[in-house]
């Protein structure tokens, strides 16, 4: 399956992503097999509030990239229901014109409880697409606004999409997620007020920009007509060059690697401790807690103690 995926077989790629997304016992093996092949693709994050036309914009971006002969992978994340864990994933609908193009792979993911705008395994999904030969991987975030900071950790270039008349431009600035953007896209630029939003954003950038590194460009697009897409593309390319050649970029990459290791450690700890707790969560413990015969701190220590063995043996599940 892994070899098939690495050679570009769509079904195999899709299966691998499912394995990793479901965190099956094989997922680590898969990711380790992928790892040597990663690091080639340009990972682009697209974020912005609902209604900003992210999906349509991504669809147009795919078109531009394809005209230049590049292969594209897309991961579009939509929120999962906190009640049922299910999700309706409908970003793809805007990109269906690319179905049937063997150079495009689109995958929808539910956020599955994560709050940072991505799902826990979005990054792994992107790495698989990278390893399996996609030149560019675009990640479209959930887009509920304020806490979407995960994308900055995993993308080479983050595009923040704004539209006139939504009032979200100022919201975003206030919420402080401006910093995550490598560039701003004012979409639906044929609408009234687009110039005003662009001017406000430019002013903000001027006010907050310190030092001499990358200055966030502001690009106007219309996903409906395709206007401004070529310029946007050039800017994104320019940013990649900057990332790959500058000190800033090297720093970013280091941070990402560090985060990756930390993330894996965090996940393993969580898994082991969760299962250790599950094993101990007999009625008896709860009963004791209820009767104040013990306290949560002591139980926690017991859980950790019992998990220690698992840590040492590197047991995952």
């Amino acid at each position: 399956m892994i070899d098939k995926a690495l050679s570009g077989d769509v079904r195999a790629i899709a299966r691998l992503i499912s394995e990793v997304e479901s965190e099956t016992p094989r997922s680590e093996e898969i990711m380790r097999a992928m790892y040597p092949h990663t690091g080639r693709a340009h990972i682009i994050g697209v974020t912005g509030s609902p209604g900003s036309g992210k999906s349509s914009l991504v669809s147009k971006m795919i078109g531009t990239l394809r005209r230049q002969g590049k292969t594209v992978g897309v991961i579009a994340v939509d929120p999962s229901s906190p009640f049922s864990g299910g999700a309706i994933l409908a970003d793809r609908i805007r990109m269906q014109e690319h179905s049937g193009d063997p150079g495009v792979y689109i995958r929808s993911m539910g956020s599955r409880g994560s709050l940072g705008g991505l799902s826990k395994t979005t990054y792994e999904g992107a790495l698989i697409l990278d390893a399996c030969g996609k030149d560019v991987v675009i990640i479209e975030t959930v887009g509920v606004g304020q806490s979407e900071i995960d994308i900055v950790r995993i993308a080479d270039t983050v595009c923040l999409v704004l539209v006139p008349g939504m009032g979200d431009d100022m919201q975003i600035m206030k919420a402080g997620i401006m910093e995550i953007a490598d560039l701003f896209v004012i979409n639906k630029a044929d609408r009234e007020g687009a110039d005003k939003v662009a001017a406000e954003v430019r002013l903000m950038i001027k006010m907050f920009h310190t030092g001499d590194g990358w200055i966030q460009p502001v690009k106007m697009t219309s996903a409906a007509t395709g206007a401004g897409l070529d310029e946007l593309h050039d800017t994104i390319e320019g940013h990649l060059k900057h990332v790959r050649s500058s000190e800033e970029g090297a720093e970013r990459l280091k941070k990402r690697l560090q985060w990756e290791v930390e993330e894996i450690v965090r996940r393993r700890i969580a898994k082991i401790t969760e299962s250790a707790w599950r094993e101990r969560r007999e009625e008896r413990v709860i009963e004791k807690l209820l009767n104040k015969e013990t306290d949560p701190y002591r139980v926690a220590q017991e859980v950790l103690d019992s998990a220690m063995g698992d840590f040492r043996s590197g047991q995952l599940l």
Partner: peptide, 16 residues
């Protein structure tokens, strides 16, 4: 049906 499947915990790719 898409909503019902979601509410049953499934992931529904709705293509319209």
């Amino acid at each position: 049906i898409a909503r019902a499947l979601r509410d049953a915990g499934m992931e529904v790719i709705y293509t319209g």
